[in-house]
Simulated assay, not measured.
Amino acid sequence: MNNTTEDEPQPVYAVLFGCIMALGLPLNAVSLWILLRRHSLKSPNAVFMVNLAISDLLLVISLPMRVYVYATGNWPFSSTACLVTEALFYTNIRSSSIFITFISVDRLLAVVYPLRSRHLRTSTNAWKGAGFTWLILLVTSISVTVTLSGQPPHNHTCFVPHDTNDTAPKISSADFLDPVVVSILLAVNVVCTAMVLWTLRSHLSDSAKVKNKMNVMLIFVLNLLIFTICFLPVSISLVTVHNRLSLICLAAVNCCLDPLLYYFSFDAFWKKKEDVELS
């Protein structure tokens, strides 16, 4: 078995993460600017997408350190700085999965229950949900970082995957939280997709009049792809001890896919529009 040593450069992953950073930074920065300047934040859909773009930018700013480590095989900072950088990555997985689920639920309510959900689908409720999400994630990340910072490091290099040997960290019950939460959120997205597809195909009289049904379904299909390709594999790997770099790299790709959600969610995304479809 070929094990990764603590001082072995990995130029392939340095290039891959560099490409993700080079693509994800402008895509999300421009998307955030457009959402804030050209689309009304009175729409809950826009609120969730703004927070999703912020989540992706937090991931992107952690990638330069990964590029450096994989290119040189050396971590020049403290172990606490490594934990904080790692926390940014896994916070993105958690926050992105939550905000994407919010978007799916919001689209479900807009299409299937447009009238009955009016009092729920407000920007105020959306901001409350987003704020509560960030608060929980912040508390969780700080508590995990503080706990791990008090433990002796397993190696002297950041981002080195652990192998199944005596030096590998033991799996705790907390490690099962991520795959369980991601699986539950994936199930919610599957249900939302099925209900919206059934509504659009059955032409129910009380459903919303959707101008572009293809774009609506593309949003749900893209959500499911991001979950199954980016989120679920890396979450499951947390309890398999093998912290596979390929899965981590694949998970980081979500910051490049999320901007497609913004494009498919709004007609004339690049143009200023007062009334967003299905808002």
Rank of each mutant, 00 (worst) to 15 (best):
N2R: 10
T4H: 09
T4V: 15
D7N: 06
P11R: 00
M21F: 15
L25G: 03
P26E: 07
L27K: 09
N28D: 03
N28A: 05
W33S: 09
R38Q: 08
V47G: 04
F48C: 02
M49K: 13
M49P: 00
M49E: 12
V50S: 02
L52R: 04
I54C: 15
D56C: 15
D56G: 14
L57F: 08
L57V: 05
L59W: 12
V60C: 12
R66D: 03
V67G: 06
V69L: 10
Y70H: 13
A71E: 08
G73Y: 07
P76Y: 12
T80C: 08
C82Q: 08
C82E: 13
C82V: 09
L83F: 13
L88I: 06
F89W: 13
I93E: 04
I93R: 01
S95T: 15
S96K: 04
S97H: 05
I100W: 01
F102V: 06
S104K: 02
L109A: 13
A110W: 01
A110I: 09
R118L: 14
H119R: 12
T124W: 04
T124C: 07
N125G: 13
N125C: 08
A130K: 03
W134G: 02
L138K: 02
V144S: 10
V146N: 02
L148E: 08
G150A: 09
P153V: 05
H154C: 03
T157F: 03
F159N: 06
S172H: 09
V182E: 06
V191S: 06
V196T: 11
S202K: 14
S202N: 12
S202I: 07
H203P: 00
L204F: 08
D206R: 13
I219N: 01
L222K: 07
L222G: 13
L224R: 06
I226R: 04
L232G: 04
L232C: 00
I236S: 02
L238A: 04
T240C: 01
R244V: 13
L245V: 14
I248E: 06
A251L: 00
V253R: 04
L257E: 09
D258M: 12
D258P: 03
L260H: 02
L260A: 15
L261N: 03
Y262S: 07
F264C: 10
A268F: 04
F269D: 03
W270M: 12
K273R: 14
E277Q: 05
